[in-house]
């Protein structure tokens, strides 16, 4: 496989995952602004920050404003980080790596693009927003399904998966990074704990509200939320789960090529962190520091994979 192709696949699936995650965050923001209007502004700000688009938004539109943020994140042609731009980039990558994709995957991406291009051509009216967000989730899910169902489990597939989990872990970590302080044991608020809007943001932005409640029988507790999103190997959006998968997929490639690279050792070290730590140890080390370290390590791993598999010259 061409190095460029491996890079194209990795980024194609990162962009798809990112677009999907952005849609989930818009959903969370929308929900909060509908149910708790007093908290809306600060929660929108947190969402903007975790997408890394806060300064771009402020430069273009100034103060946080729900409808403007929604349009900015969803389709603003001036925002290269919008859902639409992400889908378009994913599709451009798909065209570049067309020969590595099955027809099903290509058609799913292409159709996703065509449907959303039409759907997002104009600003979305409030009443249409839930349906639009649903279409985004469905269309990206179809791509995921098509790749699951039609792709041979070789290096091509593994680079796709690494892209997906890389972005997903990054996304979860960035949301945690925005909100780590409300998960700290020291600031646990007695009484109002089960009604903390910020916990709600975290769970909604990662689309894990239901999963959390099922696994924790309705008890909302910041420590459990942190544990859930960082260490719970059952949750497909937790850092531990995503890194388990990245390690696994990198391992498959090493096996297929019969060659190990520095990225493998790096990934193992990272995976080990999740196995070796429990929540107490993380809190002792400092939750914020742990997440910052993670984001830095993850960026380093990304660069190493790029070098080891020759994505570029």
């Amino acid at each position: 496989m061409l190095g460029k192709t491996a890079g194209g696949l990795f980024w194609m699936f990162r962009y798809l995952e990112r677009a999907e995650n952005t849609a989930r965050m818009i959903d969370a923001g929308l929900r909060i602004s509908l149910t708790r209007s007093s908290a809306a502004e600060s929660e929108w700000t947190a969402i903007l920050s975790s997408t890394g688009l806060k300064s771009a938004y402020e430069a273009a539109h100034g103060a946080p404003d729900g409808p403007k943020i929604i349009d900015f994140l969803l389709r603003d042609p001036g925002n290269p980080g919008s859902v639409m731009a992400g889908i378009e980039t994913a599709r451009t990558n798909a065209r570049t790596v067309r020969t590595a994709l099955t027809r099903e995957v290509w058609e799913a991406v292409n159709e996703c693009y065509m449907v959303l291009k039409k759907l997002l051509a104009q600003p979305i009216a409030d009443r249409d927003l839930p349906r639009v967000l649903q279409v985004i989730r469905q269309r990206t899910a179809i791509v995921r399904g098509a790749s699951h169902g039609s792709m041979v489990r070789n290096d091509i597939y593994n680079f796709c998966r690494i892209g997906t989990f890389f972005e997903r872990a990054d996304n979860t970590a960035r949301i945690l990074d925005q909100k780590y302080y409300i998960l700290l044991p020291s600031v646990r608020l007695v009484g109002s704990a089960s009604d903390n809007v910020q916990w709600d943001t975290i769970l909604r932005a990662t689309s894990t509200t239901r999963a959390y409640q099922t696994l924790h029988e309705g008890e909302t507790d910041p420590r459990a939320i942190a544990q859930f999103l960082i260490l719970d190997g059952r949750l497909p959006r937790s850092l531990a789960f995503c890194y388990g998968k990245i390690g696994e997929n990198l391992g498959f490639i090493a096996q297929e090529y019969d060659t190990r690279h520095p990225c493998h050792a790096l990934a193992e070290t990272l995976c080990h962190k999740f196995k070796a730590h429990d929540m107490n140890a993380i809190f002792d080390y400092g939750l914020h520091e742990f997440i910052s370290d993670f984001l830095a390590d993850s960026a380093r791993l990304g660069r190493q994979i790029e070098i080891d598999y020759r994505f570029t010259e």
Partner: peptide
Amino acid sequence: AFIADQMSAELVEGHDLRVVDGRVAMRTTR
């Protein structure tokens, strides 16, 4: 892309290629 896909060949661009050991070679993951 269609032709490359159909005959199971790599689809390359100029920047994927170099002269290496007297041959024109493509930069692969290996």
